[in-house]
């Protein structure tokens, strides 16, 4: 069982949770603000479970917090998609929809994992992610179909994020499961949603890589970590 595989899952939820929490108090409506915070909260909770298990299995005295707060960008193993900046609400929700669609299928598959601890975390998480996917799907449909402006913004967001979709399905031996096998189900939900939202799926199959392997993150991750890690790194002896 690969500790790296667990770290990948925990880093995805941590980095996306951190991104979403930047919205707190700035959402387009109170209901959206609450939903974004709620999703961020679920993701941070999942992070504690995945990174907690990774720390325990690595057996070198790490904790979920030391993994979150005391690694630099090159040791992070999250997808490039989740470190992309929030930009506007269209980019935030399109990123969420693409991630949720993958995350849901991935967790569903992991509920049958041979390792009971992994399966248990997946079972707990998939309940939350079912709701995340429902909400981001509904939002993509409403905003894709809504007004000319919202349609243009959502199409622009999809085009902008499309090169980060492929990495979710690039598979290697550190993964806890065969990520490539998730693509057909992802594509079905994607195409149904895009059709209803009147958005067009980009044709290019090019995708950026380097997030989940840590080989080459985007420039954005270092800034996020500088913010996120400032207290534990500035006051290493402190207990909070």
């Amino acid at each position: 069982m690969s500790v790296q595989g667990l770290i990948r899952l925990g880093d995805n939820t941590l980095i996306l949770g951190q991104r979403l929490s930047e919205w707190c108090g700035h959402g387009p409506a109170l209901e959206e603000d609450i939903a974004l915070a709620n999703t961020a909260l679920d993701l941070i909770g999942q992070t504690q479970l995945w990174l907690g298990l990774a720390a325990e299995r690595s057996g070198n005295g790490q904790t979920a917090d030391t993994l979150a707060y005391h690694r630099d960008a090159w040791d992070f193993r999250n997808l490039l998609l989740v470190e992309q900046p929030n930009k506007d609400f269209a980019v935030t929700m399109m990123r969420q929809f693409l991630f949720d669609t993958w995350h849901y299928e991935m967790l569903n598959a992991l509920t049958d994992h041979i390792d009971p601890e992994i399966s248990a975390i997946a079972q707990k998480s998939v309940k939350e992610v079912t709701y995340h996917r429902e909400r981001s799907t509904d939002t993509v449909i409403a905003l894709g179909d809504g007004t000319d402006e919202s349609h243009t913004r959502m199409q622009t967001a999809l085009d902008r994020l499309w090169p980060y979709v492929g990495e979710m399905f690039s598979a290697d031996e550190d993964d806890l499961m065969d990520m490539a096998a998730l693509r057909p189900k992802f594509d079905v939900h994607l195409s149904e949603t895009l059709q209803e939202s009147t958005l067009t799926q980009p044709e290019s199959d090019f995708f950026h890589q380097g997030g989940k392997t840590g080989a080459r993150h985007s420039e954005h991750l270092g800034h996020m970590l500088a913010t996120m890690q400032v207290l534990p790194r500035s006051y290493p002896d402190a207990k909070w």
Partner: peptide, 21 residues
């Protein structure tokens, strides 16, 4: 929230601010 010093503190603060909304 983005600078909360532990994952637990981050979760608690998120929950609190969400309550306020």
């Amino acid at each position: 929230i983005t600078r909360a010093p532990t994952l637990e503190r981050k979760a608690i603060l998120l929950a609190k601010v969400q309550d306020e909304a």
